[in-house]
Computed example of a mutant assay.
Amino acid sequence: MNRWLRHHRYALAVALRRLRQYPFSSLANIVVIALILAVPILGASVLQSSQPLTREMSTAPELTLFLKSDLSPATQQSLLTRVREQGGERVAQARLMPRDQAMAQLRADPTWARALDALPDNPLPDALIVTLRDSDAPAREAADVAQAWRQWPEIQEIQLDSEWMRRLESLLAFVRVSLGLLAIAVAIVVLATVFNTVRLQALTQREEIAVARLVGATEPFVRRPFLYLGALTGLAASLLALLLAWLALTPLNVILGGFARSYGVDWAIHLPALTDLLLSGLLVVLLGAIAARLSVTRRTRF
Rank of each mutant, 00 (worst) to 15 (best):
F302E: 15
E62C: 04
V83L: 15
D109I: 14
F66Q: 05
R166V: 01
F195I: 02
V31E: 06
R224D: 04
L191W: 08
L116K: 05
S49F: 08
I33E: 10
V130N: 04
A245K: 06
W246M: 10
A268T: 13
A292D: 06
M165H: 02
A231G: 14
L71N: 06
A34V: 05
I184P: 02
Y10P: 00
L171C: 04
A104T: 09
D70N: 15
V284K: 02
L282N: 07
E208F: 03
G43K: 00
I209A: 01
F24M: 14
R140H: 05
H8E: 06
P138D: 09
W112E: 02
R224E: 12
M165V: 15
V296Y: 00
Q21T: 14
F195V: 01
A183H: 01
P220W: 12
W164N: 09
I209G: 00
F24E: 10
H7K: 10
V83T: 07
M97Q: 14
D266N: 10
I188A: 15
D266I: 00
Q151I: 05
F226N: 02
L47H: 09
N29M: 15
A74K: 09
H8K: 02
Q51R: 12
A74G: 07
Q101T: 15
G216E: 05
V190R: 00
T197K: 07
L182I: 04
L274E: 07
L214R: 12
E154G: 06
A60D: 13
Q105T: 12
Q86C: 07
N122M: 11
P251N: 09
T204D: 12
L278H: 02
A74C: 07
Y10H: 14
L191M: 10
A241K: 03
M1S: 15
V175C: 08
D266Q: 09
I41W: 05
G87A: 13
V175N: 04
W112V: 06
S72C: 03
T250Q: 14
V14Q: 13
S50E: 09
M103S: 08
M165N: 05
L279G: 06
L243Y: 05
A15D: 01
G216M: 04
V198H: 01
R167P: 05
